[in-house]
Amino acid sequence: MPCSGTIDHRVILHAFEDGADGVFVAGCMEGDCHFLKGNIRGKKRVQYVKQILDEIGFGSERVEFFNLSAAQGQRFAEIVKEMTERIMQLGPNPLTSNPDGKEGGIA
């Protein structure tokens, strides 16, 4: 996606329905949005999806929003590692019948 501000709630929900064990959305640093507030919109949408996932008993830990810039390769690696560890701990997506299902859809 060209901007985290274009993320749609449905994309995240569908990712989980399709078996993703975790989803993280990476947006630009706050204040650095090329479209002014796209990353803030994206963050708020992710928060809203978290709210839904908690409400329906799926849990909100499998989705997260991170801010980082295109120049922060190392930070990106850290986030991926952190998220991977979190998902490993949580185990596979409870919606998948295959317990060895792959983790991590990245949007």
Partner: peptide, 17 residues
Amino acid sequence: EKETEILASSLRIMRKL
């Protein structure tokens, strides 16, 4: 349309759980 699909998806997940 968007809220309708979000709700349907939420309920599918919930019921599958």
